[in-house]
């Protein structure tokens, strides 16, 4: 058969090829295990596969206006974050800090096989009108609505004012 012929003539090369394919496949497996958020398998563009990580709300200094930060990971095709809301707050808006001010943004792209990252001094959520003044250890539900993936609900913990997820 084809395989048998191939083995005799291209034995070594074939091994190397198999290795490459295997490594890729295994790598892919690891990605799914690490970050997978469920959803259908989709090669290439396919549907978005979103998950949220590293979410936190720094305890607002005067109990009022707060920021929110998180990372939306995407192991699938492109999507777009359209809206964020919370049952525990009157308003949640998306903003981008500029060197000396900030501007509201209507939507944010979640790149294919990439991440949308909210971070200090950059893109952040502005949360106002708390039903209950936030305290350390509280969790606030945020509902993230995407163009293609629908709404993802996450519980976001309230951390110290100067907390950063990269600092252990």
């Amino acid at each position: 058969m084809k395989g048998a012929t191939g083995r005799t003539t291209l034995g070594f090369r074939r091994t190397a090829l198999t290795g490459a394919v295997l490594a890729t496949a295994l790598g892919g497996g690891a990605i799914l295990v690490a970050c997978g958020a469920g959803g259908q398998d989709g090669a290439g563009g396919g549907p978005a596969k979103l998950s949220v990580a590293d979410s936190y709300i720094p305890l607002p200094p005067a109990g009022g206006m707060a920021a929110g930060y998180l990372t939306v990971r995407n192991d699938g095709g492109q999507d777009q974050l359209l809206k964020v809301s919370s049952p525990g707050a009157e308003s949640v808006t998306m903003h981008r800090s500029t060197p000396s001010s900030m501007e509201e943004v209507a939507s944010l792209d979640v790149p294919a096989h990439g991440a949308l990252q909210f971070a200090r001094g950059g893109t952040h959520l502005m949360i106002m009108g708390w039903q209950k003044a936030p305290a350390l250890g509280d969790e606030l539900e945020l509902d993230l609505t995407f163009a293609k993936s629908g709404t993802l609900s996450v519980k976001v913990p309230v951390k110290e004012l100067t907390y950063r997820p990269s600092q252990s």
Binding site: A23, L26, G27, A34, C35, H113, P165
Partner: peptide, 15 residues
């Protein structure tokens, strides 16, 4: 390919 997989996997560690 492995390196790429590791990089992507590393997204789990921090933002």
């Amino acid at each position: 390919a492995l390196a790429a997989a590791l990089t992507l996997t590393a997204c789990g560690s921090s933002g």
